[in-house]
């Protein structure tokens, strides 16, 4: 789980091109959207594609996204439980 969290932080920084942000700057429970990292709806689409491409997870219900993308911790938990690759 810890390895997934670290990997996720690195991927998010890279995929979303977050300048001046290091993995250690992102706390596991920080909100990804809104106040925390300040991600937006376009970033959400990027993350959905990343889940599919890198972990084989297809998010079919958009309502699920809100809970899954709440923080690094919630994302890592969902990936660990649902990944197919």
């Amino acid at each position: 789980m810890e390895a997934v969290k670290q990997e996720l932080k690195e991927k998010i920084i890279s995929v979303l091109n977050l300048e001046d942000v290091n993995p250690e700057d992102i706390k596991d429970t920080d909100p990804l959207f809104g106040a925390g990292l300040g991600l937006d709806s376009i970033d959400a689409l990027e993350l959905i594609v990343m889940l599919d491409k890198d972990y084989g997870i297809k998010l079919l219900d958009p309502k699920e996204g809100k809970a899954i993308f709440e923080s690094i911790e919630t994302m890592a938990k969902y990936i660990s439980e649902n990944r197919t690759k």
Binding site: V15, I42, E46, V49
Partner: peptide, 13 residues
């Protein structure tokens, strides 16, 4: 690279 899959919006926009 992704065989016409996994296309993300940012670079397209």
């Amino acid at each position: 690279d992704n065989n016409e899959s996994f296309l993300t919006p940012t670079s397209f926009i």
